[in-house]
Design a protein around this nucleic acid. Structure first.
Lengths: 206, 206
DNA sequence: GCGCTTGGCTAATTTTGATTAGCCACATTA
DNA sequence: TAATGTGGCTAATCAAAATTAGCCAAGCGC
């Protein structure tokens, strides 16, 4: 009954490992436990499977963007919540973001697929950038602005602060995508980074 | 006469845009200005073209590593050269690295190819990591250690310092690979980052 | 209990792209 | 200048994958 979803799921896994062109429909079928021609009962052709993955991705993206708008853009109710954000809290935020991105089942496979296809399809490049660069950065920036305005940090350019906070997360994320064995090392380094970050910028605290 | 090189060159360009599997030998031939079967006068098959690119890449890599060994690993002659490294000098180093990586004709295409193929071939993942993560980081780290030991910076964990210095360069590099239109913005941000970095860590200076 | 839809299968068929065969012109050289 | 090697071309051929045809069983609504 949900063979249709299983197909998408296995296809995404394969596309994220080998890229669209290296995956044969027979391979997808195998994983699902059916024969290749049966796939065509569910999708018009290979391309349609790919497109369905993109659609699903867009759906989730909008869903998530919506959620962020509610919880993120509107915390003006009480900015002081952020004032006393502790070093530990910052570590939690940073490592949480990293861990979520790295391990979330869907997200991580999708990110790898985007990585592989980004230079081929412009739309993928755009999605990638908004999802893994501009998105997180604008969210973090908003946080830092709040924290700054409530005096939690030494005054500084928030663009730079955000860049400095986030880019290690990003770099280590892509590193672990390539080599999952280095996750532990990455986490340790990331924690040191964030504590150091807090020390460098948090001079004005308490 | 040097059709053989032209083939490699065009192939690399195409592989870096679409990935090995999406490039047809006829396409490479077209670009070179010959017919597909003529390619086989120069290379045994498509795979051989690919392999030749890798070989060439390895050749350059070793060449470059050799050069670094001479100019980089052995500057113990006079560490004090680094003591007074100025903010401007640091900016120059950072932006120089960024600009070189981004624009060097061969390097940039090769990096994109690695990006596309990294999850498919483990060897590529390794090359990528050593070339764009571990390599630059260990080099930078060495620099910072020298600078620290000569008192140019406030004492700090060099792993973290290096991570913080380099990862913005890395992130913006991959951003510009995806979207060259953002180079100017990236450069400006990077310069601000490095000046800020210097301010944060350089407290002990002069 | 019958006609219909769903989703699976096997056995073609088609397409596409890589590769080979075999011919030819030109240049080099013994 | 004949022999040979090089690098190009057109016209096959091959192989691999995608896709289609056509059959069948199970489930289901009337």
């Amino acid at each position: 009954m949900d063979t249709k979803h299983r197909i998408l799921d296995e296809a995404l896994t394969l596309f994220s490992q080998k890229g669209y062109a290296n995956v044969y429909v027979g391979e997808i079928a195998d994983r699902v436990g059916i024969k290749a021609p049966s796939l065509y009962k569910h999708y018009k052709n290979k391309q349609a499977i790919f497109d369905a993955i993109i659609d699903e991705m867009n759906r989730r993206y909008e869903e998530q963007a919506g959620a962020l708008n509610i919880s993120g853009m509107n915390p003006s109710e009480d900015a002081s919540v952020y004032m006393n954000i502790s070093e530990d809290k910052l570590v939690e935020i940073g490592l949480g973001l990293f861990t979520y991105f790295l391990h979330d089942d869907y997200t991580s496979r999708f990110r790898k697929m985007l990585t592989i296809e980004q230079f081929h399809h412009k739309e993928f490049a755009d999605i990638y950038t908004s999802q893994y660069v501009d998105g997180p950065i604008s969210y973090q920036k908003m946080l830092f602005q709040l924290m700054l305005s409530s005096g939690a940090f030494v005054p500084a350019d928030t663009d730079v602060m955000t860049l400095q906070f986030y880019s290690p997360i990003y770099m280590l994320l892509t590193l672990c995508d390539r080599d999952p064995g280095r996750e532990k090392e990455a986490l340790a380094l990331l924690e040191k980074h964030i504590r150091q970050f807090d020390r460098l910028y948090g001079g004005a605290k308490e």
